[in-house]
């Protein structure tokens, strides 16, 4: 509640007329230094708006033309130039040679980790653990297309079933039920037989009925005992790793409608040095072959 403006007895300064429970506010001026700093800040802000891209207007860059993107450019160029000698060596070496050279290997593992996180982890997981729905784990000891340096490098370079690269891994599993090659009961029998390869079958009779069907339709790619064939990207059916699930429904679905992972070709997207770094990194993840 404003009261009378009066001179304060102790300090000789006028009050503002505001009073709270007997406490009155003195009308002291702002300190000079504070005011000058305030004015200087206003001038600084105005100069900033004129010189720098401070307004949310498309294309407004201020008189200096400075942009954050423009500023980072030379820094990145400098970093690339700094890495270039190492990258050149990585481009010129095979993954085996890189893995054998401690210095190159250390660089490739460190760089490969980052490149993997940027490009591969989306499907294959942060530590190469894979993901449900047909994204294979790279940290285990099963390699669909081969776990040697050359095989890994080829897969990264050209991908699988992508229609981008002529050298892509490109085999196709038939759709046995959908295309009328097997009837539904036959599919069920073959699924029981596949499960029996790892001791999972519950219906021994059905598994027995499926055996000849398997030999006739599946063994050409997956092998007589389901041991798989890496040249064809046909995974082993006799081990404990199941990309699409180990229950009977999943197996029957695989037989009926086929499976086949798609992976992009990285040849044109990544520097050959990065591909080599990734190869060495992925090889080291699960031990490689």
């Amino acid at each position: 509640m404003p009261t009378k403006i009066e001179k304060d007895a102790v300090t000789g300064i006028n009050t503002t007329g505001h009073e709270w429970d007997g406490l009155r506010e003195l009308d002291n001026p702002l300190p000079k230094w504070w005011l000058y700093v305030f004015y200087a800040s206003i001038l600084f802000a105005l100069a900033w708006v004129v010189l720098y891209p401070a307004l949310p207007i498309r294309g407004y860059t201020g008189l200096t033309g400075w942009t954050a993107r423009g500023a980072i450019g030379p820094v990145l160029e400098g970093e690339r130039a700094r890495q270039e000698p190492m990258l050149a060596r990585l481009r010129g070496a095979t993954p085996e040679q890189i893995a054998a050279d401690p210095q190159l290997r250390a660089f490739a593992l460190a760089g490969g980790r980052i490149a993997f996180a940027n490009n591969c982890a989306g499907c294959h997981g942060a530590g190469g653990q894979g993901a449900a729905g047909g994204f294979p784990s790279l940290a285990d000891d099963e390699w669909i297309w081969g776990g040697s340096f050359d095989a890994i490098q080829h897969t990264i370079q050209h991908g699988a079933r992508n229609g981008e690269s002529d050298d892509a891994r490109a085999t196709q599993m038939p759709r046995f039920l959908a295309d009328g090659m097997l009837t539904a009961p036959q599919v069920s029998d073959v699924a029981e037989h596949v499960l029996s390869l790892t001791g999972r079958a519950t219906d021994q009779a059905a598994a027995g009925r499926g055996a000849p069907l398997f030999a006739e339709n599946c063994a050409s790619c997956h092998g007589e005992r389901g041991e798989g064939n890496r040249d064809l990207g046909a995974p082993s059916l006799a081990d404990q790793i199941w990309l699409y699930g180990s229950d009977k429904a999943s197996v029957a679905r695989s037989i009926s409608y086929s499976r086949g992972g798609v992976m992009p070709a990285w040849n044109g997207r990544l520097d050959p040095a990065i591909v080599n770094m990734l190869t060495v990194y992925v090889h080291a993840l699960g031990g490689g072959e």
Partner: peptide, 18 residues
């Protein structure tokens, strides 16, 4: 201990930690 993956199942059914 590597936490991604927590453990790896190997083709022979073994379990591996890194």
């Amino acid at each position: 201990r590597e936490r991604a993956p927590l453990f790896v199942r190997l083709s022979d059914g073994g379990i591996r930690n890194a």
